Simulated assay, not measured.
Amino acid sequence: MRYTETLTDLETLYLPQVEQFGIELAPCGEALVGQVDSDAARASMCVYRLGKDCVVEAHRILVRRDLPLYERGVDSLCISSLSADSLALCPVAPVEKVVGAPRCLAVFGQRSGETTTWLRAGSRHDSSSVVFLPSRLNRLDAHERRAARALVEEPGLVCADGCASSVGSSIDAVMPLFGGRLARGRTLDAQVDRALLGVLAWREECERAERAAGTHERALVVRGVKNYVTLHLSEPLTLDVLAHDLLTSRTRLCATFQCATGQSVGSFVRSARIARSKELLAVRSLGVAEVAHAVGYPRTSSFTVAFEREEGLSPSAWRAARP
């Protein structure tokens, strides 16, 4: 990709995806807008760059054929209003049910590095996001800055109804793709600040309620386990690795997770691997061996046994049974 060696941190947040889809961005007021209609996808995009440390970006993508999405992350805080298909690709703990149709709000810290995910033919990826680099967060007052840094360091979250609606509306208000209007200057900064402060207030209220109920530390462990497992399914996931990453002991980790969820850590890892494998098996250009490796099974035979135990069918038979 022609941008790979020349991207600034700010450009890294959107230009690689722009190039992959073949979108030509052009100035429109203070935004960059563009669209493409190809055999791979129909996509529209709108981007604002706020100085050197904040991006507001929205896209609507209908994927027409299975394709890999290559991303380069930078250390940042991301607030995203997402469709269900996009939420499944985010670094947040899996949720049982997507709250607030047609999109919900995810808040998570990004890390520097490269990732590859697969977009499934027929999937729809609608998203409006604000991404803050650390220098932008440093403008906050001391209390707000600590809260923002905690969001970056802690496992990603899916916000509840009220916050999702309010913050999502603040972002959408400046995005024509979702019924808003192009904004400039102070209006844009005000909407970005409103979104960030709304999330910080929501998280503070949640933490206060957890502490009052005596469940805050337990909730952190559970979120930590779920997020770590979700982000590292292709790697060996032992109790020692998890305990080390979450700064706790194996005994406390197992007891806390079992008490909070009614499920052992090992059982959660197995179910998470099978759930992800089903998503990847839906990408028919991926072989079963590739899927097995992607979810942490070095041997295809071991993956097949685990999959049959959970689903009653082999991976190949399960894939063939899908329309």
Rank of each mutant, 00 (worst) to 15 (best):
V305I: 05
E5W: 07
G312I: 06
R65I: 04
D172W: 03
F178S: 02
T261Y: 10
A306F: 03
V229W: 08
V92M: 06
L67E: 14
A219D: 11
G179K: 03
A260F: 11
R146D: 11
R60Q: 10
P298F: 13
Q191S: 08
S170L: 07
L89I: 04
G168Y: 09
G179C: 03
S127E: 09
L237A: 05
G287W: 12
T12L: 07
N138I: 04
D245I: 01
V130W: 09
V36Y: 06
L280R: 08
T187P: 02
R120F: 02
A320E: 15
A40G: 03
P68V: 02
V192M: 07
P134W: 08
L200H: 02
E217T: 08
P68C: 01
T6P: 00
L280S: 07
G73E: 02
E5C: 00
P94R: 14
A289R: 12
A106L: 07
V225F: 10
L253I: 06
S112P: 01
S170H: 14
E19F: 08
V56Q: 08
R299G: 00
R218Q: 15
C259W: 14
F257K: 12
S129G: 03
V288N: 03
A321S: 15
A142H: 11
D189Y: 05
V192A: 09
I23F: 07
F132L: 03
S302L: 03
T238Y: 15
I61A: 00
H232Y: 04
E11A: 13
G266E: 14
R60W: 06
C54Q: 04
R252H: 11
E290V: 04
L50K: 04
R139G: 14
A209T: 07
Q20E: 12
S76A: 15
G262L: 04
L247M: 01
I171A: 05
C254Y: 05
E210M: 03
Q20F: 04
P68E: 12
C90N: 04
T248Q: 13
G156Y: 12
K278C: 10
W202Q: 02
A88H: 04
A147C: 06
D9P: 05
A173M: 08
D66C: 09
A183P: 01
P68T: 02
A93E: 11
L247E: 09
S166I: 01
L281H: 13
R146H: 11
G262H: 02
T117R: 05
L247C: 00
H244F: 05
L82G: 00
F307L: 08
A88W: 03
R65H: 12
C90E: 14
V47G: 09
S165E: 13
T251H: 11
M45D: 13
R309S: 14
A84Q: 13
E310H: 15
P298H: 09
E235K: 13
S316M: 14
